[in-house]
Design a protein around this nucleic acid. Sequence first.
DNA 1: TTGAAAGCGCTAACAG
DNA 2: CTGTTAGCGCTTTCAA
Lengths: 347, 347
Amino acid sequence: MTSTPSEPPRRPLTLRDVSEASGVSEMTVSRVLRNRGDVSERTREKVRAAAKELGYVPNKIAGALASQRVNLVAVIIPSMSNMVFPDVMTGITEVLDGSGLQPVIGITGYRPEKEEQVLYEMLSWRPSGVIIAGLEHTDASRAMMQNADIPVVEIMDVDGKPIDSMVGISHRRAGREMAKAIIKAGYENIGFLGTKMPLDHRARKRFEGFTEALAKAGLEIQDKEFYSGGSALAKGREMTEAILKRSPELDFLYYSNDMIGAGGLLHCLSKGIDVPGQIGLAGFNGVELLQGLPVQLATMDAGRSEIGRKAAEIIIRRNTPDQDHAPERLEISPVIQFGETLKRRRK
Amino acid sequence: MTSTPSEPPRRPLTLRDVSEASGVSEMTVSRVLRNRGDVSERTREKVRAAAKELGYVPNKIAGALASQRVNLVAVIIPSMSNMVFPDVMTGITEVLDGSGLQPVIGITGYRPEKEEQVLYEMLSWRPSGVIIAGLEHTDASRAMMQNADIPVVEIMDVDGKPIDSMVGISHRRAGREMAKAIIKAGYENIGFLGTKMPLDHRARKRFEGFTEALAKAGLEIQDKEFYSGGSALAKGREMTEAILKRSPELDFLYYSNDMIGAGGLLHCLSKGIDVPGQIGLAGFNGVELLQGLPVQLATMDAGRSEIGRKAAEIIIRRNTPDQDHAPERLEISPVIQFGETLKRRRK
DNA sequence: TTGAAAGCGCTAACAG
DNA sequence: CTGTTAGCGCTTTCAA
């Protein structure tokens, strides 16, 4: 709202205003508005009426300073446009709703300095907890979380040493298991397609686990293709076309995410390539999108919403007095969905 | 972090700690940490060293209470999983970055009561502005925003009366223009497919504009199909199959979003239906995803990131002293992308 | 260039 | 059940 110059600059309403309007002490007004302590029904009514009438919105800044309590939970994630973090957020929100705690989201764009900055900003509001994606942080970020003396839950990944609690899957293991499934199905000439993102540690770990398991079976990746930026679906098509042109002997393509995998699948379908006969495909994440494709892409459900729920539960538990406040480490087991693009090959 | 029982409960660091560690008054420490006022280089050094050494993170709660200034901007959107709001967020973040203001995101799930609750929660932190999706709010929400006396920018939609500023497109007009383009291309038996979401006002307005323009040309929608929940892509396939089975005479399908449109397109392709010869298709939003499809779906780019940028600019301007603080109303013009699914038909 | 005092709006703790 | 007092940790304001 813009005030016309003549209006006196409106002073935000305070407890005192409600107190005066209702003829009840500030303290009692505060009690009513927070549902704390015993207040007679008559008084409550009066106070609530006055507060509503005036349109009073409490000042949590002052409240938080006085009570040393903040009902905010900092959630720090790399990206929103990812299909994966929205699911995590849904899980977090589900659990936090009704707990009195409120998630506040910060985005890092996969950049450690930005993460540090967002973290600093959020910690300066003294939240009741931090949920943060990944185990890799700058020393400064790590130190801040250590010193904050609030519950910290690192999510998505369990391959590393957490600051406090963690909930996630082992991406190394995920990569290994997918490799084993592919080998078991009889594929031998395997290509890898992924993002050119050195800072996406989870993708990197899956790749490492994948190659490791192949090596154990005496195999290695025949060809690779990486992309950055642009529409993942389109990139998936392009990369698939490119890699198959370059290495026609490939009989399996492992994609680092479902979106490029879907692009690859669409490419194969449009070229009339026999999937999974001539070539098998698999992605990663288990995104809902896949259900809409004409053929079900093999993938691995990373349990995203469960991760969100568990993380939120830990934060709540750690904020409950008289509870065990030990760090919790929780490994979720991802589940391979074979779909129709990863099937035993006839020799 | 969990303290072992023997550790004394750590008291969060305060300015005073830095003051004592550096031998400089609290006030001067505060000046250094905020880069305010003149402080000798020597003193600055000392203070910064002490702060870093201790790992001091300022308490913004106390700072905000004292200064009556909060660098937070409340951003209230219905959903994250939508493909549309991430783009808006990107625009907002781009502009806010480096302005000293920080976006804080709240999610309403398209539910007015939830919006009210999120708004109340956020306003109680006295942010420097509100960016909120849509023009439809409960009376209580509206009143809160009126009374907050901070800049409020309603985004996405301009068909209605804003509380203060607004930036968006006219969805009614968007619907009308798509109808005109379809008619002009020679299609006559038009079907509509959309979400069963009475609270998605923008989708509703597009539908209204669409039918209105058809009516003006003496046409009306021949058949409709609605969905809720599930994978939009999959629903697009299913609905398209259903509507074409029921009404084989249809020669155009207008989808209320690109995701179901893409599903419809995939269905048609897999059935060997001639698009756009036998049947034309169009979606809405201009999402990046479309670029990966084998055929380019007609759509309308709603200028999402521009909306985000403009909204953020307004918030910044309104927080700059000595600027014109009049409400701003900005209509973005959406652009039809004809793709390959909306083309003049040969008679 | 630095410091001291006052107080932001609320709640913890205690008294009645 | 209700009220009083004393801060929470900073910044504003004023004085040195």
